[in-house]
Amino acid sequence: MILARVLGPVVSTVKIRSLEGHKLLLVRPVRPDGSFTAKPVVAVDTVQAGKGDTVLVLDEGGSAGIILGLTGQPVRTVITGIVDSIENKENDNDKRG
């Protein structure tokens, strides 16, 4: 999974059946310090994330199918969690051990 920030909702009424009933959010991958690292992607939301949230995004078909209960469907990018906090040992000054 990768870290990403929710930029906002995406509305698409004409779409394939397996996407119907799912909320779509525009998310953009970020580094742990919050800076953007790649282009935005559109993800299926399963945790009611909102604009500005930092979220966990899964980008792999098999697991996406398991989470959404759709096997063999063309859905790959799924939001699986809302991040409360990130502890990043890399840029902590007091390196223990």
């Binding site: 995406v10 509305v11 009424t13 004409v14």
Partner: peptide
């Protein structure tokens, strides 16, 4: 590459 939806509205 397969088109799976037409976007009506999106952020920005």
């Amino acid at each position: 590459a397969t088109i799976v939806g037409i976007i009506d509205k999106a952020e920005g």
